[in-house]
Amino acid sequence: MSKATLPEDLQEKYIVPGLERGLRLLCEFSRKDSTLSAAELARRLQVPRSTVFRLLTTLEMMGFVERTDGGREFRLGMAVLRLGFEYLASLELTELGRPLLDRLRDDIHYPCNLVVRDGRSIVYVAKSVAPTPFASSVNVGTRLPAHATVLGRVLLEDLSLAELRELYPESQLEVFSESTPRTVEQLFEMVQHDRQRGYVLQEGFFEASISTIAAPVRDRSGKVAAAMGATIPASRIDPEQLGPMVEQVRHAADELSRLLDYRPAAEHKVVNLYRE
């Protein structure tokens, strides 16, 4: 909702002037005006030059603007570019993944999810619910610990042992079930077996009554960009259906990888993930 669409009596209550000014300042830069001085920005925004200097200092510290022309002018910084790339990447992933999730759900008749990693957490970015009595407890935006979930294990596959130790510097990992790895070394061994297998199927890894099938989604660089999975009540698994279901999940994940321009033949040479 823009400021113009807010009732006048709510604008004063909900609009943050400093944030609004900072965003308006960023919007003044364009292809035509790629560099601007503080004086010009103050004139355009019709605010005191001291206010513009405070805004510019804050934005410069965060990487959204940078100085040029000996410090007399400013231009957009790399943080703006990263935001744009992250937006495009997330839009591409969810928009391309949604139809595949729906089709997978229709094929296997269980809820299907697409998740990405944010540090030590997984974040659900898309979900397709099956019309069954079984209701998943997660929604889009739900965050769960990466090391303690099947989907999280898939998202950790590309990390070396040294990178995992940097992500989890503690000597003992937080335990959520009997299946949770206790140390980084145990976690690393687990995810490397997952990597070699190409998928994960496990019962009760995070919740006792839930089984998950998960497979990696890779982007054009060959890195794991997301994990696609199906959630199944453990008591309802038919062993004869498991093989076909695993293949359906893997096929859907591979198809999304292809849509993200992943080409297995173009992968970089295998690196030593055990490096310190």
Score class of each variant (00 low, 15 high):
2 S>H: 10
5 T>L: 13
6 L>G: 03
6 L>H: 04
8 E>C: 14
9 D>Q: 11
10 L>F: 08
10 L>K: 10
13 K>A: 09
14 Y>P: 01
15 I>A: 01
16 V>A: 15
20 E>A: 15
24 R>C: 06
26 L>T: 06
27 C>S: 11
30 S>P: 08
34 S>H: 04
35 T>H: 01
35 T>E: 02
38 A>Q: 13
40 E>R: 12
40 E>N: 12
43 R>K: 15
46 Q>S: 11
46 Q>G: 10
47 V>P: 01
48 P>S: 07
49 R>L: 14
49 R>Y: 06
49 R>S: 09
50 S>A: 12
51 T>F: 02
52 V>F: 02
59 L>S: 02
67 R>M: 09
68 T>N: 03
68 T>P: 02
69 D>E: 07
71 G>A: 07
75 R>D: 00
83 L>P: 10
87 Y>R: 09
88 L>W: 08
88 L>G: 07
90 S>Y: 01
94 T>M: 02
96 L>G: 03
101 L>Y: 01
101 L>A: 01
104 L>H: 00
104 L>W: 00
105 R>T: 10
108 I>Y: 02
108 I>M: 03
112 C>T: 13
114 L>P: 01
114 L>T: 01
118 D>W: 06
119 G>L: 04
119 G>D: 04
121 S>V: 15
122 I>K: 06
123 V>I: 14
124 Y>V: 12
127 K>S: 12
127 K>E: 12
127 K>T: 11
129 V>A: 13
131 P>I: 05
131 P>E: 10
137 S>P: 01
139 N>I: 14
139 N>Q: 14
142 T>L: 11
143 R>Y: 14
143 R>N: 14
143 R>F: 15
145 P>L: 10
146 A>K: 01
148 A>E: 07
151 L>V: 15
152 G>F: 08
157 E>C: 11
160 S>D: 02
162 A>W: 03
164 L>C: 10
168 Y>D: 02
169 P>R: 09
172 Q>G: 10
173 L>E: 09
174 E>K: 13
174 E>Q: 13
181 P>N: 12
183 T>D: 02
185 E>F: 13
186 Q>E: 14
186 Q>P: 08
186 Q>V: 07
190 M>R: 15
193 H>V: 12
194 D>G: 05
194 D>H: 08
196 Q>Y: 08
197 R>Q: 06
198 G>D: 03
200 V>M: 07
201 L>Y: 10
201 L>N: 08
205 F>A: 11
207 E>M: 05
207 E>I: 00
210 I>V: 03
211 S>T: 07
212 T>I: 15
213 I>C: 04
214 A>I: 06
215 A>T: 01
215 A>C: 04
217 V>A: 00
218 R>D: 02
220 R>Y: 08
223 K>S: 13
224 V>K: 02
225 A>L: 09
225 A>D: 04
233 P>H: 09
236 R>T: 12
236 R>D: 09
237 I>H: 06
238 D>N: 13
239 P>I: 03
241 Q>C: 08
245 M>F: 04
247 E>F: 05
253 A>H: 00
254 D>G: 02
255 E>I: 04
257 S>A: 03
259 L>W: 00
260 L>R: 00
261 D>Q: 15
262 Y>A: 02
263 R>H: 15
265 A>F: 07
266 A>S: 14
267 E>S: 10
268 H>Q: 15
268 H>A: 15
275 R>A: 15
275 R>F: 11
